[in-house]
C-alpha cells in the first residue's frame, strides 16, 4: 500500500530547513525582529528559540540597518547568519548595508573575506497592506553584482534553495512571498541542496513559454492547466535565481516555442520582465514569432481598497488574456 507522499507548507519547509541547518552547523545563527519569543511575524521560526536558545536565535531591536550590518560583520568572521527582515519593504532601511557593504566586501577588498550571510524576506502585495507594505523590489537587489538573489516558488525549492543559501559563501537575498507561505507541496526527505543560478522548466509545453518566478510560477502553472484543456500547450519557466540569471534555460525554451510572456509581480518599467525581454532579443531574436509581452503590476503605489488592489496586481486572468493575444498574433490554432 503506497501512501500519498505527505505535503507540507512552504512555511513548514522553511522552518524545517532552518532547524536542520542550525543543528548541522554551529556557525549558523538566526537574527531578526520577533523571530524568537514571538516566533516570527509569519511564524517561520516557530519553536526554534526554545530548541536552540537565544544565542542562536536572536531577537533584534527594530534596527534593520544595525542588525543586517551586524550579520554582515559576523559573517566576515565566519558565522553563517540567517537574517529575517519582516518584509521586503523594511529591507530598504538596511539597503546601505546590503548593497554598499554586503555586496562589496568580498570583491572590493580583493577577495580576502567572504560574507556568507542570508537575508530572508517576503515580498508581495495582495493582503490589503497598502502601498508601503506591498512592494516587489527584488529587482533592486537583482541589479547588484556581488549579491545572489533567489526566489523559490515551491516548498521543495524553499527547502533546497534555503539550504544552498545558508551553505553559500556569498551574501544571498532569499525572496519569499506572503502568498506562498500557506501553499503546500511534496518535499523530499533528506538533504536537498539546490544549485543557485539555475532556472527550471516546471511545466513542459510547445506553444508558448511563460517566464516567471516566485508567486508568479503558481499562477502560470494554473493558467497552463487551463490552456491544456483547450489543447494549448504552455511551457512554464521558473527563474528561481534572479541573480545570477539563468538565461540559457528560458532562451532555449523560447527558441522552441517561439512565443514568450513574462509574468512578474514587480512594476513594469525597468522590471524583471524588461531584462528577460532584452535577453530574448539577443538570444532568441530569430526564433520569435511575436514580440515578447510582459504582465506586470500597474505602476502605482498599491492602494488599500480591495478592488484597486486587485486591479493593480497581475493575476491569472491577465496572464491568460496576454497569452491569448500572443497566440492570436501568430495565428495560432490549437
Amino acid at each position: 500500500m503506497n501512501a500519498e507522499p505527505a505535503q507540507i507548507t512552504y512555511r513548514q519547509a522553511l522552518n524545517d530547513t532552518l532547524r536542520a541547518e542550525l543543528t548541522r552547523d554551529p556557525n549558523v545563527i538566526l537574527l531578526g525582529e520577533e523571530i524568537g519569543k514571538f516566533e516570527g511575524s509569519y511564524k517561520i521560526t516557530a519553536g526554534l528559540l526554545k530548541e536552540f536558545g537565544p544565542e542562536r536565535v536572536r531577537d533584534t531591536p527594530i534596527a534593520e540597518e544595525g542588525f543586517v550590518g551586524a550579520a554582515i560583520g559576523a559573517a566576515m568572521l565566519g558565522l553563517r547568519p540567517v537574517v529575517e527582515i519582516m518584509t521586503l519593504n523594511f529591507s530598504l532601511i538596511a539597503i546601505d548595508q546590503i548593497v554598499n557593504h554586503g555586496a562589496k566586501i568580498y570583491g572590493m577588498f580583493g577577495g580576502q573575506t567572504p560574507v556568507p550571510v542570508v537575508i530572508r524576506f517576503p515580498g508581495g502585495g495582495g493582503q490589503q497592506l497598502a502601498a508601503t507594505h506591498s512592494q516587489n523590489l527584488e529587482v533592486w537587489y537583482a541589479h547588484v553584482p556581488g549579491l545572489k538573489v533567489i526566489a523559490p516558488s515551491t516548498p521543495a525549492d524553499a527547502k533546497a534553495m534555503l539550504t544552498a543559501a545558508i551553505r553559500d559563501d556569498d551574501p544571498v537575498i532569499f525572496l519569499e512571498n506572503l502568498a506562498l507561505y500557506n501553499t503546500k507541496g511534496v518535499v523530499p526527505d533528506g538533504e536537498q541542496v539546490a544549485e543557485i543560478g539555475r532556472a527550471a522548466v516546471v511545466r513542459e509545453g510547445t506553444d508558448l513559454t511563460v517566464i516567471t518566478y516566485s508567486r508568479g510560477t503558481l499562477i502560470a502553472l494554473e493558467v497552463a492547466r487551463r490552456f491544456a484543456e483547450e489543447g494549448i500547450s504552455l511551457e512554464v519557466v521558473d527563474l528561481r535565481s534572479l541573480r545570477p540569471l539563468d538565461r540559457a534555460t528560458f532562451c532555449e525554451s523560447v527558441r522552441r516555442t517561439s512565443r514568450a510572456v513574462v509574468l512578474e509581480d514587480d512594476w513594469l518599467s525597468y522590471g524583471i520582465g524588461a531584462e528577460i525581454s532584452a535577453t530574448l532579443m539577443e538570444c532568441a531574436f530569430d526564433y520569435l514569432d511575436a514580440p515578447v509581452r510582459r504582465v506586470a503590476a500597474a505602476e502605482v503605489p498599491l492602494p488599500y481598497a480591495k478592488p484597486l488592489e486587485l486591479a493593480a496586481l497581475p493575476d491569472a486572468e491577465d496572464l491568460a488574456r496576454v497569452v491569448r493575444e500572443v497566440l492570436a498574433a501568430t495565428g495560432f490554432r490549437s
Binding site: 542588525f67 551586524a70 559576523a74 568572521l77 558565522l79 554598499n100
Partner: peptide, 16 residues
C-alpha cells in the same frame, strides 16, 4: 558603514 559590521564582528567574537 563600518559600524554595524564592526558590531557584528564583536557579536561573532562573543558567540565564539
Amino acid at each position: 558603514g563600518q559600524i554595524p559590521p564592526a558590531t557584528g564582528a564583536a557579536l561573532a567574537l562573543a558567540y565564539r
